[in-house]
C-alpha cells in the first residue's frame, strides 16, 4: 500500500536521465575521437577511447540500477519490459562506439585525403542519428505525443549515413587511390562499422514507435 501512495518514480527518472547522458556523451566523444584519428592524432583518439570506456562502465551501472528500480518499485508494470528493452538497446550503441574507436586506434587505418571529408560526414550522420534518438527516448518518457518527429529525423540521418556508406564504398573500390585489396577491405570494414551506429539507432526508433502504439488506449 505504501508503495502505491508514495511516488518513487523520481529516483528512477534521475537514473534514466544520467544513463541517457552517458549514451549522448559517448557518441559525441566517439565523433571527436574518430575525427582526430582521421587526422592522424592517435594519442588524442586514445584518450577519447579511455573516456568512452569509462562512460560505458558508468552506463552499465546505471542500467543495472534502472532494472532493479523498475522491478523493485513496481513502476509501469505493463510497459517495463519495453522500457528495459529500449534502454538495453541503447547500451549496444555505447558498446559499438567503444569498439569502433578501439579498432581505429589499434589498426590506425590510413584514410586517403580525398575521402577524409566523407568519413567525417558519415561519422557525423551516424552520431546525429544517435543524438536524435536519445532526444526521442527522452520524449518517449516525458512527452510521448511529440515522439514521431524525432523518429522521422532518426530515419533521415540513417538514410544519409546509408547514402554516404554507398558513396565511400564505391570510391574505395572504383578509384585507384587505394591500391591494395587488403586496405580496400579494411576501409570498407570501418565504413560499415561506423554506419552501424545509425542502423542501431534506426532499429531502436522503430521499436520505440511500437512501444508508443502499445501505450495508446
Amino acid at each position: 500500500m505504501k508503495n502505491i501512495i508514495q511516488n518513487k518514480s523520481k529516483d528512477l527518472q534521475n537514473e534514466i536521465d544520467n544513463y541517457l547522458k552517458c549514451i549522448t556523451d559517448s557518441s559525441l566523444l566517439f565523433f571527436e575521437g574518430a575525427r582526430e584519428a582521421y587526422r592522424g592524432d592517435y594519442d588524442d583518439a586514445e584518450n577519447r577511447y579511455r573516456d568512452i570506456s569509462e562512460l560505458e562502465r558508468r552506463a552499465d551501472e546505471h542500467l543495472k540500477a534502472i532494472q532493479y528500480k523498475l522491478y523493485a518499485y513496481n513502476i509501469a508494470p505493463d510497459s517495463r519490459a519495453d522500457i528495459f528493452e529500449l534502454l538495453d538497446g541503447l547500451d549496444d550503441i555505447v558498446d559499438r562506439a567503444k569498439k569502433n574507436i578501439f579498432q581505429i586506434c589499434v589498426e590506425k587505418p590510413v584514410i586517403p585525403d580525398c575521402m577524409k571529408d566523407d568519413f567525417i560526414a558519415i561519422t557525423a550522420a551516424s552520431v546525429d542519428a544517435v543524438d536524435i534518438l536519445i532526444q526521442g527516448v527522452r520524449s518517449f518518457f516525458e512527452d510521448v505525443n511529440s515522439l514521431e518527429g524525432y523518429i522521422k529525423n532518426v530515419y533521415l540521418y540513417e538514410k544519409k549515413a546509408d547514402a554516404l556508406e554507398e558513396k565511400i564504398k564505391r570510391s574505395i573500390f572504383q578509384s585507384t587511390v587505394v591500391e591494395e585489396l587488403a586496405r580496400k577491405f579494411q576501409l570498407r570494414y570501418y565504413v560499415e562499422k561506423i554506419a552501424m551506429l545509425s542502423d542501431l539507432a534506426e532499429n531502436l526508433a522503430k521499436k520505440m514507435l511500437m512501444y508508443k502504439i502499445k501505450r495508446i488506449i
Binding site: N7, S9, L12, Q13, I75, A76, F140, E142, N145
Partner: peptide, 10 residues
Amino acid sequence: IKIHLFSLDW
C-alpha cells in the same frame, strides 16, 4: 497533456 510516463503510471 505533457506528463512523464512514470508519473502517469503512478
